[in-house]
Amino acid sequence: MTAIPNLIIETLPEFLLHAITLERESVERYEELGDSMEVHNNPQIAAVFRKLARYGELHANEIEQHATGLELPRIPPWDFKWTTPESPETGDMEQLHYLMTQGQALIFALHNETQGRDFYAHVAATSTNQEVRELAAEFAEEETDHMNWLNAWIRNLADPDSVSPEDLDPPNVTE
């Protein structure tokens, strides 16, 4: 993996801040998507996003334990060393649709986990700090597990490739 010079993470606190932010923003986004699907009467997909949020929450707590006793730096949102425009597990908003199917939602989530894995892998490959490299590799491994878990979920779906059904109603006039 090629190192992007100004995206190299050098210290453990910096790395942990990235990891925590990645997980927290992911949880927040899944919650937001859960809300949004509820508002738009797609309870099945809302439940999927809620479940993803719950798992994310657990993972975030785990990572936060690594940071116990450490003083984390404060970094403005735009100075995080992401390889993506936003933190890696917040997803591509444009892929969302209120009538999205379970398959689409899980593929959305899989994309997130893949980006998360890629981020950690990048750190594992490029950090100048041994401890960071090891921990990042460990986290990349975990993300891979998540990807496997999601892939299994997708495979078990009756119709994993289903697309959003046709919207039979016109948009509403609200204000």
Binding site: D35, V39, P76, E94, L96, H97
Partner: peptide, 24 residues
């Protein structure tokens, strides 16, 4: 340059669920 703060972005959200379309 970053001020020391315990405030997170989420603390500035009300929790009211937006009516915006997913993907907006």
């Amino acid at each position: 340059n970053t001020p020391i703060t315990g405030l997170k972005p989420k603390d500035y959200k009300t929790g009211i669920k937006p009516v915006w379309c997913p993907g907006c």
